[in-house]
Amino acid sequence: MSARAVWEEEPTVAGRLGKPVVLALIALAVAFPLYVVVVTSLSSTEAVTRAGGLVVVPRELTVAAYVQLLSGGVVTRALVISVAITVIGTAFSLGLTVLAAYGLSRPGSLFHRPLLFVVLLTFLFGPGIIPSYLVVNSLGLIDHYASLILPAAISAFNLIVMRSFFMGIPGELIDSARIDGAGEFAILRRIVLPLSKAVVAVVGLFYAVGYWNAFFNALLYINDNSKWPLQMVLRTYIVQQAPLPTGAGGVANVGLGLAPAPGLAIKMAIVVIAIVPVLLVYPFIQRHFQKGVIIGAVKG
């Protein structure tokens, strides 16, 4: 509906004026903090001093903070770790989820119902923090990067979303491929996956955002701070306000002949670095969930 229906009343004055104001305030509530953080991260020492802290009006922008953070040290290392965990974890989770979703999408197959029950039951209760910790510990995964992937690799929700989509693929397509002699793996690769690009993309992006944002598993399982992902760094230096280490192994002091960035700009640059990947994939997520991939699956 892009125009007002003929039977609808004229909008009231309050509605005509109030609605844009409310919408603008809502958008501003989301956008303004992000704006302030970005501007401050790009500000020079002088600009930060003049503003007395966070900078709202941009003046003398510089990328010194980013150069310092990304030329080696704590944040560079955490960034590399987070990117690696996200890429490897997403590939792993997505691959296993696709396989299981297809394996469970043929009603009447052997053990179909009990296996589906095993997946669904994980919705009803969690194993608890301490028993999970003890299992990860006894597998020798403490301080191992695998502890950031394996325990949370499978989201039952994502699996069910994908399975519902696979079940909507016309059975005739699959049956005719089977008559042509295709095995299940070939059917999955040649028939089902090409028809399911959207749902695979959405589920992949959900996994990726999940890995990128994961903080709690690192808190539980990674004691060695040289193995911290970015969210742990963010927590330590921004939320807990620990002083940033400088010099070798910390944050580089100078880079490319730029004046050193103020501490606040460096901190805000860490925040921005944590946001950017989410902003990069966000348009893709948005394009897909507007098609109702998620909602349809939840209802089914």
Partner: peptide
């Protein structure tokens, strides 16, 4: 007929077993 489907579900079943059901028993 269905063994390929079971093979496909196996990795997820193992992961849920090790990291969900096994710790649940650990309670």
């Amino acid at each position: 007929r269905d063994w390929p489907l079971l093979v496909m579900v196996l990795p997820v079943t193992v992961l849920l077993g090790v990291f969900h059901y096994f710790p649940t028993l650990g309670n």
